[in-house]
Computed example of a mutant assay.
Amino acid sequence: MEHEDFDILKSSGKKVKFSLNKLQNSLRRSGADNKTVDQIIDTVRDELYQGISTKEIYNRAFALLKKQKSVFASKYKLKKAIYELGPTGFPFESFVGAILKYSGYQVNIGQIIFGKCVSHEVDVVAKKNSDYIIIECKFHSEEGRNCNVKIPLYIHSRYQDILHNFEDKKENQIIPNQGWVVTNTRFTKDAIQYGKCAGLYLLSWDYPKENGLKDRIDRLGLYPITVSTLLTNREKQFLLSRDIVLYKQLRGDMFYLDHLGISEKRKQKILHEVNMLCNE
């Protein structure tokens, strides 16, 4: 049977045809060379069967990449690593804030802003020059859950309430001029259509095209701490609890690794991976 004829099971429960191109592209994004990609493709293709889950394909490809080079595996697991920021969603808000901070914004997390009708706890507030952005983050810790139109509808009404409270303010006061919705999953077509119509900026895993979360992270080298294949889950949770959400932050906060009792040899391996991943 040709590999194109295999049905695979997505995390949403939907069956789709296996795409060799999608697997090749995701492997290439990891930075692996063509020879490594071809070897992994051949191995995975030989192990396909009807109804195999995308999770099983991912796990196999990840294990093969990790054998070759840990930094390839770390880059490949980006999407899964963002899910691992959960379950509360707060580290995801900090992660979104950190991405904007490295883009030159002044950032506040969990700020109370008064609306005309009620006060609102805003996930992320970002300011730079004339930009004053109000950001709501919608984090899903389970794969296969998308953001439907109800999310931008609800957030747009909050944003409008905040704007109405600025109507009678002083002339020199900076007024919010952008409302964002950021999710680690995807938006439905209706959600995107509403966002465009209402003037909300929507940012998801792969939207806008070529400027989604995955593109920004790859471009800026701003990988979450959870991509690491060298740190244990316990160590990652400890670092997240100390507000270390970006892998590159470890460069300036090495004493956390000392606090965790990580050996000098292992520490050097971790730092090497950080430098390889984070555009240094």
Rank of each mutant, 00 (worst) to 15 (best):
E4Y: 14
D5A: 12
D5L: 09
D7F: 15
D7K: 15
I8H: 05
S11G: 01
S12R: 00
G13D: 05
G13Q: 07
K15M: 12
K22D: 14
L27R: 02
L27E: 02
R28I: 02
S30I: 01
V37E: 09
D38R: 07
D38I: 05
I40E: 05
T43F: 01
V44Y: 03
Y49G: 07
Y49P: 07
Q50P: 04
G51W: 04
S53G: 10
Y58R: 10
R60F: 01
A61M: 03
A61Q: 06
A61N: 09
K66H: 07
K69E: 11
S70N: 12
Y76N: 00
K77M: 07
A81D: 00
Y83W: 08
Y83A: 13
Y83C: 10
T88A: 09
E93V: 07
I99N: 02
Y102K: 15
Q106M: 11
I109N: 14
I112N: 11
I113E: 10
F114Y: 07
G115N: 13
H120W: 14
V122W: 02
K127I: 12
K128L: 15
K128P: 05
K128I: 03
D131P: 00
Y132I: 07
I134K: 02
C137H: 04
K138C: 01
H140L: 04
G144Y: 02
G144P: 08
G144L: 08
R145L: 07
N148Q: 03
P152Q: 04
L153H: 06
I155S: 06
H156N: 14
H156V: 06
N165M: 03
D168I: 15
I174K: 13
I175F: 03
I175K: 12
I175H: 09
P176D: 01
N177M: 09
N177L: 13
N177Y: 05
G179T: 05
V182F: 00
T185E: 12
D190K: 15
I192C: 08
L200P: 03
S204W: 03
P208L: 01
P208C: 01
E210C: 11
N211R: 08
G212P: 05
L220A: 04
I225A: 11
S228P: 05
L231G: 06
N233F: 04
N233T: 14
K236F: 00
K236R: 14
R242H: 08
D243T: 08
I244Q: 09
I244Y: 05
I244V: 13
K248C: 15
L250P: 01
L250G: 00
D253W: 06
F255D: 12
Y256W: 06
D258V: 04
L260S: 11
E264M: 04
H272A: 09
N275W: 03
M276N: 06
C278Q: 03
